[in-house]
């Protein structure tokens, strides 16, 4: 098989999303409501103060947009995809083709993400930018470094969702897992509250867990809250976490496949 099949999967996923236009409107509207709610909360919390803990209100607005719709994307699609395919045995369809299932998943969901970026995140960012205002990156360095952080963030969220989806094979339902994952991640990742507002001991612990690379670190880098040395260092740690998570996904997939082909779907 040609590697060209994988970009084709991404493109197919992108195209398939064009079919459901209502879903796009609903998601965009939902994202807008939640982002304006968060802006309102931060405005109230700042209560006219120029800055809290060295962070300004416009920075928090930008943080809310980056850490929410952009970085903390709709991962439950991955979780259900993997969970259902493995549990119902539909994964057999993929095993019948000359392709690598985890790579197939990666390219398909990248296609979904690309679609959501274009159709939902960009319009939402435009509306927020024109009404409330968004900040540019703190410096050229921080702006450029945001991209590798973004990639690491995307892949970490993807691998975490895959892991939970694969666990469904043993636990029979991905449903309870999703709640668990959602609760942990929304707090640990910094998607709702940045780590700098958390009590220091908690922030220190969360700061070393892989979740904070999903929302907190990329957004903090964009806003220039990490100096260049810390930026490079945390990118390295993020990559190590990514490596570990990828290894875990591949190991679990190998195990699931082994069990599928030994036990049957």
């Amino acid at each position: 098989m040609r590697a060209a099949a994988y970009p084709a999967f991404a493109l197919t996923a992108f195209q398939s999303r064009l079919v459901y236009r209502n879903q796009v409107w609903a998601s965009a509207f939902g994202d807008l409501v939640s982002i304006f709610a968060r802006i309102a909360i931060w405005t109230a919390a700042f209560a006219g103060a120029a800055q809290v803990d060295g962070v300004t209100l416009p920075e928090m607005v930008t943080y809310a947009l980056l850490s929410g719709p952009l970085l903390y994307w709709e991962y439950s699609r991955v979780l259900y995809d993997v969970g259902d395919a493995v549990r119902t045995g539909d994964v057999a369809v993929f095993l019948l083709k000359p392709l690598h299932y985890p790579s197939y998943l990666l390219s398909t969901h990248f296609g979904h993400f690309a679609f959501e970026c274009v159709a939902i995140v960009v319009p939402v960012a435009l509306i927020v930018g024109l009404t409330v205002g968004l900040l540019p990156p703190a410096s050229l360095f921080h702006g450029l470094m945001f991209f590798p952080y973004w990639a690491v963030s995307w892949l970490i969220l993807f691998t975490l969702a895959c892991l939970c989806g694969l666990l469904a094979f043993w636990l029979l339902t991905a449903f309870s897992l999703e709640w668990f994952l959602m609760a942990i991640m929304s707090l640990f990742s910094g998607a709702i509250i940045p780590l700098w507002f958390l009590p220091t001991p908690l922030a220190t612990i969360f700061g070393y867990l892989p979740f904070s690379w999903i929302s907190y670190y990329p957004a903090a880098v964009y806003l220039g809250k990490l100096d260049p040395t810390a930026t490079w260092l945390h990118l390295g740690i993020g990559l190590v976490w990514l490596g570990l998570l990828t290894a875990a996904v591949l190991a679990l997939w190998g195990k699931a496949r082994q069990r599928l082909i030994v036990q049957g779907g």
């Binding site: 098989m1 999967f9 195209q15 000359p98 392709l99």
Partner: peptide, 28 residues
């Protein structure tokens, strides 16, 4: 080539032709 009467290998949301085209890539 495999056909399962009770499992579909076609992409549900896309025209049949697009599924065929993906197979062109998968099987080179």
């Amino acid at each position: 080539g495999v056909v399962f009467g009770q499992r579909s290998q076609l992409w549900w949301d896309l025209p049949v032709r697009d599924s065929f085209d993906l197979n062109r890539h998968i099987y080179d």
